[in-house]
């Protein structure tokens, strides 16, 4: 499997990354190297291996349904580039 320049551009767009021509080229090569290694792993017989859902051998970590105070709106909005009336203000996207 190999990844094309167009696919790199598509993934970059989805991730909202603006890449220059040299970067696109570099990432195409790097991603292909990574996927090449995956191909190598694919040679292994995983017929009887359960897909791994998590790296930790844990399940069922819960918290009880209790309310605790969070941040004050001033603190929550402190680092916001733009705000209005205790709300984050963003360019309109429809």
């Amino acid at each position: 499997m190999s990844i094309s320049l167009e696919e790199v551009e598509h993934v970059a767009l989805l991730a909202r990354l603006e890449l220059g021509p040299a970067e696109k080229e570099a990432y195409t090569q790097q991603l292909n190297a990574i996927l090449g290694y995956m191909e190598k792993l694919n040679e292994l017989d995983t017929e009887n291996v359960e897909p791994m859902a998590h790296v930790l051998p844990l399940a069922n970590v819960f918290r009880e349904d209790e309310v605790k105070p969070g941040l004050a709106p001033e603190a929550a909005l402190d680092q916001a580039p733009d705000k209005h009336d205790n709300q984050f203000r963003v360019p309109k996207i429809v």
Binding site: V67, K68, A72, P73, N86, Q87, F88
Partner: peptide
Amino acid sequence: PCSTEFGAPPNTHV
């Protein structure tokens, strides 16, 4: 643990 209360002032349950 933020509250799910409906109708609170903006960004008070964050």
